[in-house]
């Protein structure tokens, strides 16, 4: 139980980078970008092929990020210069990327098990620090029986994800970032303040898919393979993270929303891990569970607020009736 939750949190923290990317396109630019299904795999593919060709792991991961940026920019070009509807631009790019990803990989699956990845390199450095044994001792002391193999992935990925979060927060408050947000909010207005909305959208989608590809590259190294189909339904996972997080944490400020998105990604993986432990669901049901989760996260908050509102109205009516009776 503890180990499977621990694994879910690890994967969730890696997925959170993808979710931050989806937040940039879906919320900030108001652009439901389906490119994500393709660019996640592109990131994984580029990193895998680079690593198996003995490129250093950090460089391989950076290359993945850059390729994702290019993929997203192309979607942006289709939408702004080609005047293609946002949804369709994303679908076209996602479809094209499927073939491109296969071209990059040359085969539909690349195993990375005996390769040195970001995480194997990390654990080499980590094991000398003695943090694992210290943390595990603490866990045994509070009675945990099965202990995680290493804390390095979780802690380091958490730091990386938080750094990306803070950079995103900062970026969205800069002059360029403000213009980017306005482009998603009121395009006509920001054009009247000398901002090139085409450029902003292309750049925004590039950044978004760059993060998605980075997440894909890290995930491939985490699970030890890159697979052509690992991105199927990824946009829904991203939306699930954004929507679940927002409905729990709220969207008062940007810092809070990006935090919500990260938490949403982790919660999503935990819920999936718990659901899969039940006897009647198996791994093939993940997509169904994901969709149901998104639907619940969309519907429940609305139901709650309508219920609250009608309760408030009923209370007022009753109060009015009682006052009327009192006067009679």
């Amino acid at each position: 139980m503890f180990i499977s939750i621990f694994g879910a949190i690890e994967a969730g923290v890696i997925y959170a980078i993808m979710a931050l990317g989806v937040y940039l396109s879906f919320r900030v630019l108001d652009f439901p970008d389906l490119t994500v299904d393709g660019s996640f795999v592109t990131g994984a593919a580029v990193a895998a092929i680079a690593i198996t060709n003995d490129v250093s792991t950090v460089l391989a991961t950076t290359l993945a990020l850059i390729t994702g940026f290019i993929a997203g920019s192309v979607t942006g070009l289709l939408n702004t210069k080609g005047k293609i509807n946002p949804l369709l631009s994303g679908i076209l790019m996602m479809t094209a990327l499927y073939s491109i990803n296969l071209r990059i990989m040359g085969q539909s699956n690349i195993p990375l098990l005996n390769q040195s990845t970001v995480f194997t390199r990390l654990s080499e450095i980590w094991s000398g620090l003695g943090i694992d044994s210290a943390l595990n001792q603490g866990l045994s002391a509070i009675g945990a029986s099965s202990l995680p193999r290493t804390w390095s992935i979780l802690i380091v990925m958490l730091v990386v994800t938080l750094v990306i979060k803070f950079i995103t927060d900062y970026y969205l408050k800069t002059e360029v970032g403000l213009a980017l947000r306005a482009a998603g909010d009121n395009e006509k207005m920001i054009r009247s303040f000398s901002a090139n909305t085409d450029y902003l959208k292309i750049m925004g989608l590039g950044l978004s898919n760059g993060l998605v590809a980075l997440s894909g590259a890290l995930y491939a190294q985490y699970v030890g393979f890159a697979d052509l189909n690992m991105g199927v339904g990824m946009i829904v996972v991203g939306l699930a993270s954004v929507i679940i997080g927002e409905s729990i944490v709220g969207t008062k400020s940007i810092m809070r929303t990006t935090f919500a998105v990260i938490l949403g990604a982790i919660l999503y993986r935990i819920v999936i891990a718990l659901a899969l432990r039940s006897t009647f669901l198996d791994a093939n049901d993940t997509k169904l569970i994901t969709s149901v989760l998104v639907i619940l996260a969309l519907v429940i908050p609305k139901l709650i607020s309508t219920h609250k509102e009608s309760k408030r109205k009923r209370r007022k009516r009753i109060a009015l009736q009682q006052r009327a009776k009192g006067e009679v």
Binding site: Y170, Y171, K173, T174, E175, V176, G177, L178, A179, F193, S194, A195
Partner: peptide, 12 residues
Amino acid sequence: SRDKKRSLRPGV
């Protein structure tokens, strides 16, 4: 920022 180049410095 209308008549300036938008930079990566904080807007406010």
